[in-house]
Design a protein around this nucleic acid. Structure first.
Length: 444
DNA sequence: GGTACTCACCTTAGCTGC
DNA sequence: GACCGCAGCTAAGGTGAG
């Protein structure tokens, strides 16, 4: 069943939506090749002092270790924890296999992350049975084919299916790990009985800031939120957010399962093992980040008009500066050139711990449009210059696809340890324990 | 005293053109 | 020409998710 696009098609009728969430996905994938670590507290994440936990086994969770927790905290509260470095490419490969199983049930699959997805199985009920049977079939196939566990929520809409999958998961308590139900079904008509007793922070879109505002209104549970006037919720958290949350509190969510949600931004950011203090260092890092962003833009067949620089200082104060170009660009040269003036205006003397470049406002691939734009902005030789860069970077893509990413890169990315390239997920959870030596002072 | 990376979406403010 | 209201765009920051 291929070639399906857009959104799930059944309207008006009661839908059957599945939310499938892999259990401790990264750790579980690692344990397939390290079975000796099964039953022990294991985490995947950054090992350095600025790293965080990406995923924790349920045995680690017994000690309070959670994803997004600083690695130093995890070590403190669970000294026996085993750290494993992440392998983003492997997780992506396994994720593709998981999604193939989803697609064997329905073409209406909306990926949310590597380890979870929504499935609209309304049209698959006649073939595979009801929601519960389909959910159990998916669980069985994931276990049988991939040796991985997942939890499934079944409900008439996405939002409830998501909450149901959380309810289906195993629970880690200080006393031990309690197996989850595996599948939780919220039947039509049972929505409010399931939803209203939950704490309001269970709602999708209630993070720490929103929770504090709602608690000031005396809201603790979803039922409390539902009892408020929508106007009061809007006054507390803003119009769009407030209206959305109030609808959710009454289990109202008609968002379709979207099969092909196009990407709206592509970016890279990196936290450094030690702070950067000079424009020379920052410019070198900028070229590396621009190279990574440009490569992904070209791979996606798109180009961006708006470029954003992100700088996080030593004290965690973070600023963003952006620029919108006359036309879309997709070369590292053009991106670095556009962002350089923004960077030049930043004072790095307090110490910069993180630098990021992201691209939004996508247009057609740069081929024609960017040249027109550059013509407006920078007449004369720059157009020819940019055309040469475009040709050069397409050649770089060809070389990388044949000989690997490390075969070629910007001169400024060369250090004593070789070429340091930006790859998606390569430094997903912070710098490593033993940082690379800072690049030597090399000309760009 | 510690806090990654990537992406989506929202709010607010300022500017511009009609 | 000055002013107003509106829409659209841009910039910056914030929030939330996984």
């Amino acid at each position: 069943m291929t070639g399906v696009s857009g959104v799930s098609g059944v309207t008006g009728a009661v839908r059957t939506i599945l939310h499938v969430d892999m259990d401790a996905f990264y750790v579980s994938v690692e344990l397939r090749r390290r079975p000796d670590l099964r039953g022990r507290p294991v985490v995947v994440g950054g090992t350095g002092s600025r790293g965080v936990i990406a995923a924790a086994s349920y045995e680690a969770r017994r000690f309070g270790v959670r994803s997004a927790m600083p690695s130093t905290t995890a070590r403190r509260i669970c000294p026996q924890v085993v750290f494993l470095p992440g392998d983003h490419e492997l997780y992506a490969t396994v994720s593709t296999q998981v999604h193939e199983i989803f697609h064997s049930v329905t073409p209406f699959v909306e990926p949310l992350a590597l380890d979870e997805a929504f499935l609209d199985v309304t049209g698959a009920v006649r073939l595979f049975g009801d929601g519960l049977q389909i959910a159990e079939h998916v669980r069985d196939e994931v276990w049988r084919q991939l040796d991985l566990r997942c939890s499934v929520g079944v409900a008439p809409n996405k939002f409830l299916a998501k909450l149901a999958s959380v309810a289906a998961k195993p629970k880690a308590t200080p006393a031990g790990v309690v197996a989850g139900a595996g599948v939780v079904v919220v039947p039509p008509g049972g929505e409010l009985a399931f939803l209203h007793p939950l704490p309001v922070k269970a709602l999708w879109g209630v993070g720490p800031a929103t929770l504090e505002r709602l608690e000031r209104l005396g809201v603790r549970t979803v039922r409390d939120l539902a009892a408020l006037d929508e106007a009061a919720v809007v006054a507390a958290v803003g119009k769009a957010h407030g209206q959305h949350l109030h609808r959710l509190s009454w289990a109202l969510d008609d968002r379709p399962v979207e099969v092909d949600r196009g990407m709206k931004s592509i970016g890279h950011e990196e936290t450094y093992p030690t702070d950067l203090y000079t424009h020379d260092e920052l410019r070198r890092e900028l070229v590396r980040l621009a190279d990574g962003v440009a490569g992904r833009l070209r791979a996606a067949g798109t180009a961006a008009r708006t470029l954003t620089l992100k700088v996080r200082f030593n004290d965690f104060h973070t600023i963003t500066r952006s620029v919108t170009l006359p036309g879309p660009v997709d070369t590292a040269h053009a991106i670095a050139k556009a962002v350089a003036p923004l960077l030049a205006a930043v004072d790095p003397s307090p110490g910069v711990r993180l630098l990021g470049v992201s691209s939004t406002n996508f247009g057609e691939q740069a081929e024609q449009l960017s040249l027109d734009g550059l013509l407006d902005a920078e007449p004369g030789g720059d157009v020819a210059d940019e055309r040469e860069w475009q040709a050069a970077e397409e050649t770089i893509d060809a070389i990388r696809s044949r000989f690997g990413n490390a075969a070629i890169g910007p001169a400024s990315a060369v250090s004593a340890n070789g070429l340091r390239l930006v790859r998606r997920g390569a430094q997903q959870w912070g710098p490593d324990q033993q940082p690379d030596p800072r690049p030597d002072q090399e000309p760009e």
